[in-house]
Amino acid sequence: MSVALFPDMIVNGITIPSAAIAAEAQNHHAPKGKPGLAWRMAARALTVRQLLLEEAQRRGVAAVPEEVGAGRSETEDEAQIRALLETAIDVSTPPEEAVRAEWVKAPDRYRAPPLWEVSHILCACDPGENEGAIGAKARADILADAAHKGLRRFADLAASDSDCGSKANGGALGQLGPGDTVPEFEAALRLLGEGEMTPAPVRTRFGWHVVRLDACAEGQVLPFDTVRPKLAEAMEKAAWTKAARSFVDGLISAAQISGPDIRTI
Rank of each mutant, 00 (worst) to 15 (best):
D8E: 14
I10Y: 07
I10G: 01
I10F: 10
G13D: 14
I16R: 08
P17K: 10
A19V: 12
A20N: 03
I21A: 06
A25N: 07
H28D: 04
H29K: 14
P35E: 09
A38D: 06
W39P: 01
R40A: 13
T47H: 08
V48C: 02
V48L: 03
R49I: 03
L52K: 04
G60T: 09
V61W: 12
E67I: 09
V68K: 14
G71H: 08
R72H: 10
D77H: 06
D77S: 03
Q80D: 03
I81K: 04
R82T: 01
A83P: 07
L85Q: 09
E86W: 01
T87G: 03
T87A: 12
P94V: 00
P95K: 10
V99W: 09
V99I: 15
R100D: 08
E102A: 14
W103H: 06
R109N: 09
Y110C: 06
P114D: 15
L115K: 07
E117K: 02
S119D: 11
H120Q: 04
C123L: 07
P127M: 00
E129S: 00
N130P: 00
E131I: 02
A133M: 01
I134A: 05
G135I: 00
G135N: 02
A136N: 07
L143M: 06
L143N: 05
D145A: 05
H148M: 11
H148W: 13
G150D: 08
R152Q: 09
L157A: 11
S162Q: 03
D163N: 15
G165E: 15
G165W: 12
S166Q: 10
K167C: 10
K167D: 08
A168D: 13
G171I: 11
G174Q: 12
G179P: 04
P183S: 05
P183M: 02
E184G: 03
L189I: 09
R190V: 10
E194L: 04
R203G: 00
F206K: 13
H209W: 06
C216F: 11
T226I: 03
V227R: 12
R228G: 04
R228I: 00
P229N: 10
L231I: 06
A234Y: 00
E236Q: 15
T241D: 15
V248K: 01
G250V: 11
G250Q: 09
L251T: 06
Q256R: 09
D261A: 15
